[in-house]
């Protein structure tokens, strides 16, 4: 039966004066479209098998004792562990410091690339090189820079600024260790934020910044009143991604700082691999998950772009 005939039928339906004969709405409903769901299926299956299932499993393990009964012991062990406080502190501190730094740096880099000046494209390639290096490799590279016989100390000695090598990565100097980790991570992972922001900047039509310019906006005003608000969706994605990844930072810290600077992900690894206590390791993993979720929620909530604000 074709849809086209229905209005005619409706008109033919006898009705009293002023009464409009309505067509049968049920039959007119649009056919359900399965295509988007079919397209989503492979990704959904992948995520369910490799992410959702292990996540549920670790959730169960975290609350399971050796006999398979329910317990809070793992949480108790985790919280009372001497490293727990430091790990939590360092992880949060690391995130609070590195995420804003990276976003600001990445924004500056993205704006430079988006100027469209002659060398802008060249910078894009240079700045994304660290993305191709694994985090462990990056950690080792920076270790060879900061260590006692590393490049920095050699330069300092050559310049006569110091006689004995400075111990950047020692227990005595946790602040220096922390700074070294932050620098290494800035070098390694700022580019991913930059790439997201460059993509975001490129879809902002030039007409908007031109209009702002014509209407008297200075470069700062253009950035603040036009570019940043229109970049908000990309900033949101970058922040979520970057923060989640920062919660998982491990290999780089491990290579550079060893046990001097414990972080949550590192503790999970330690409890799994060294202590061989799967329960506590799973509890750490669960904590990281909860913190990431809470964070994502906050970003979604406070950086939300309403539908009517989109072009």
């Amino acid at each position: 039966m074709s849809l086209k005939q229905e209005p005619e039928q409706a008109l033919k339906t006898p009705g009293q004066a002023g009464e409009v004969a309505l067509p049968d709405f049920k039959r007119r409903r649009r056919r359900f479209n399965y295509t988007p769901f079919l397209l989503l299926l492979p990704a959904t299956l992948f995520l369910a098998i490799f992410f959702l299932y292990p996540m549920l499993q670790s959730f169960i393990i975290a609350f399971q004792d050796s006999q398979g009964g329910f317990t809070f012991d793992n949480i108790d062990t985790m919280v009372k562990d001497t490293n727990f406080g430091d790990a939590l502190k360092y992880t949060l501190l690391f995130i609070v410091i590195i995420v804003p730094l990276q976003v600001v740096l990445a924004l500056i880099m993205a704006l430079v690339i988006n100027t469209g000046l002659k060398w802008a494209g060249f910078f894009l390639y240079i700045w994304t090189i660290p993305l191709a290096i694994s985090d462990l490799a990056a950690g080792i590279v920076w270790y060879s820079i900061f260590t006692n016989h590393g490049y920095i100390n050699q330069i300092l000695i050559q310049l006569g600024l110091t006689q004995t090598p400075i111990d950047f990565l020692s227990f005595e100097n946790p602040t220096l260790v922390f700074v070294a980790v932050v620098i290494a991570e800035l070098w390694r992972a700022t580019a991913i934020v930059m790439v997201i922001l460059v993509a975001g900047l490129q879809v902002i039509p030039r007409a908007y910044t031109e209009a702002a310019e014509v209407f008297g906006a200075s470069p700062w005003q253009r950035l603040w009143h036009v570019t940043l608000p229109m970049l908000k969706p990309s900033l949101q994605v970058a922040l979520i991604l970057r923060t989640i990844l920062a919660f998982q930072t491990f290999a780089l810290v491990f290579a550079l700082a060893g046990r001097i600077m414990p972080v949550l992900a590192g503790e999970a690894y330690k409890w799994y691999n060294d202590v061989r206590n799967v329960g506590v390791a799973a509890t750490y993993a669960l904590l990281i998950l909860l913190l990431s979720l809470a964070n994502t929620f906050i970003y979604l909530r406070f950086l939300n772009t309403k539908a009517e604000e989109l072009a």
């Binding site: 007409a207 209009a211 014509v214 608000p229 229109m230 604000e309």
Partner: peptide
Amino acid sequence: SPRRRNIAMVFQNYAIFPHL
């Protein structure tokens, strides 16, 4: 620069800011 010219402009595609 445009902002020193005391002009106003109506663009072909309007270019009114979607976020405002």
